[in-house]
Design a protein around this nucleic acid. Structure first.
Lengths: 199, 199
DNA sequence: AACAATACGGAGACTGTCTCCGCTTAGCAA
DNA sequence: TTGCTAAGCGGAGACAGTCTCCGTATTGTT
């Protein structure tokens, strides 16, 4: 769904030349290598090393991604697009409230599988196109459907749900890499759902 | 309550010489300076700079605190002792469930005031003496009292409550420094409490 | 006062960040 | 094609932070 993201990008900042072929090539390569590298070495992986492995100079990396966060954002955005796609089937589920709960559990699992790289970006839903916004957006429809079906409280917002879920993603992602034991995502999301369910 | 912590330290690893006077002096100075510095510059503050400002060489800093986390831990532990003291009055409150909710809100506020330095350490409650353990321990009695009074569900653990709260601390701490708006701690803790309250 | 044991501190090797600027290349126009 | 120009490249190198090693200084004990 990167194409969609790009389309929006274009429509918001119209007078923007397309990237030159070599520039785009390097950009893609950098994101690909960075994904591997962040996954393997954590979010502090050496940027010069990533540049080298992508076959470009550090200057090129820093031109495309002035800060580490810009690169991390690009990586996470792609990942988030894929994760968001996972929500689509749930939109037509018969029990919207259960679908929402399922989705939140999946979200936690995905963040865990992504080594917690994205957990820092899960909040902060107001910049467009970034990780938080994509996931927020994907959740929003599920929340709306659950509300419409009367399954969850009208006064609870998507943001609030995301905030509460972020603690779970963080805890579960952390526990995985530290070998700790924490209650399961299902259990914790269940507790959250218990609080927001109508009764 | 640092004294208590030290006492436990001593009883667990008995054959441990007391620190030499100059060593203790430097240790104290380092923690004090580090607290300031982390608060002012975030958790990535330069360690050599901290050493310099404490009037010691880098070698001395690294001997006392082999890794950055060790120093951060020492700083956060002191802070956590102070925060935990804030729970004491609530232990005798007439409504234990309300007291627990109050405490969790205070916890979020404290973490926010500490610039989120401790939020990374809030989980991970199994090493002794560290931030997470101190706060976990402080919460435990309040949870027990609320359960005993029948205010909250018997099946909910302190860890689970801390995990859920950590999302809130993280979100609120973050929003403060980024100028974002998030639902208030009261509101979010309220949602959590709604989930764990008996009915 | 003398002597271990303990602790200090800073020079310096090392690693990672980020910039500057001369060189290369893509894409366009004639 | 050819030539031109803007866009893009890349790597040398300045800088900042980490962390160690080891000769020197201090402490506390006999």
């Amino acid at each position: 769904m990167t194409a969609e993201t790009e389309a929006k990008d274009a429509q918001e900042r119209p007078p923007r030349r397309p990237m030159r072929a070599d520039a785009r090539r390097n950009y893609e390569k950098l994101v690909a290598v960075a994904t591997e590298s962040f996954l393997a070495n954590g979010p502090d992986a050496s940027l010069d090393e990533i540049a080298k492995r992508a076959g470009v100079g550090p200057g090129t990396l820093y031109r495309h991604f002035p800060t580490r966060d810009d690169l991390l954002d690009a990586v996470c955005t792609r990942w988030a697009d894929a994760v968001a796609a996972d929500a689509a089937p749930l939109l037509t589920a018969e029990d919207p409230t259960r679908a929402l709960a399922d989705w939140l559990v999946r979200l936690v699992d995905h963040v865990g599988a992504f080594k917690g790289l994205a957990s820092a970006l899960l909040l902060n839903a107001d910049r467009k196109h970034d990780t938080a916004w994509i996931l927020h957006h994907a959740s929003e429809e599920l929340v709306a459907r659950a509300k419409a079906a009367g399954g969850i409280r009208q006064d609870v917002t998507t943001s609030e749900l995301m905030t509460l879920t972020s603690g779970v993603t963080y805890a579960c992602g952390y526990s995985k890499q530290a070998g700790k034991t924490v209650s399961s995502p299902e259990r914790l999301i269940g507790l959250i759902m218990d609080g927001v369910t109508t009764r």
